[in-house]
Write a protein that binds this DNA or RNA. Structure first.
Lengths: 111, 111
DNA sequence: TCCGTTCATCGTCTATCGCCGATGAACGAT
DNA sequence: ATCGTTCATCGGCGATAGACGATGAACGGA
């Protein structure tokens, strides 16, 4: 099934820190998920259906993408009767951005 | 073969801009490639063999990861006799970082 | 000239992604 | 009580990422 993605072993080919960073980027590595993040942050409502309408993908597919984003910690999820509510975790997203910035900086300082 | 990755169609589920961003993140979505970037930026030499020693992966595997990074535009490649030289494209990396920052900002401004 | 090193590519295998339709649970409204 | 909506999950399918070993080209040194 198209689950996990957050917890890939990748053997022991890299320190856990790099693995964590990579897992975060993996969540961002699909255009549909980028689009979902943009839509989520632009609107207030954030139920699954709305994303489905916006995205031209099957409901089940969107649900899976949302799940991946939630498991990556980039989106918060709150089951609310019929309309589950999804919300961007701005802090987490900023955190990913920070780690990428750190990587860029390490490239510049290490020259 | 484990090639492309940069040019996935993903149907028409998202605007080309999101696709471009996602493709960049896809290159960063593997711990080995993160590790390669770090190593590349920390050292001067940057031949394939060195990365292989550092990484505990088969030479062919490392070569593929390098190719992916090159195709994503994050690493510059210059065939130099025996020792091909690989070098981080700091500008490109900074560019990716900027687009992520932009995404984070759009989340905050759109609230 | 011959050998060792480096490296890109190929062929193969397995695991997983990403997509979908179908299904069933939960809920609101009639 | 019954229908329609929303949504998460399952099962299956096709594509491909990611790993490896083998191979051959290119080069340097003995």
């Amino acid at each position: 099934m198209a689950d996990s993605l957050a917890e890939q072993d990748h053997a022991n080919c890299a320190p856990p820190e790099s693995r964590a960073v990579a897992a975060r980027f993996a969540a961002l590595s699909h255009p549909a998920r980028i689009e979902i993040l943009k839509h989520l942050s632009a609107s207030r409502s954030c139920c699954c259906r709305e994303v489905v309408d916006h995205l031209d993908l099957a409901q089940s597919t969107v649900s899976q993408h949302l799940k991946i984003l939630v498991e990556a910690g980039l989106v918060r999820f709150q089951p609310d009767r019929q309309r589950s509510r999804y919300e961007v975790d701005r802090a987490a997203l900023a955190d990913v951005s920070a780690s990428l910035t750190a990587l860029v900086n390490s490239c510049c300082s290490g020259r």
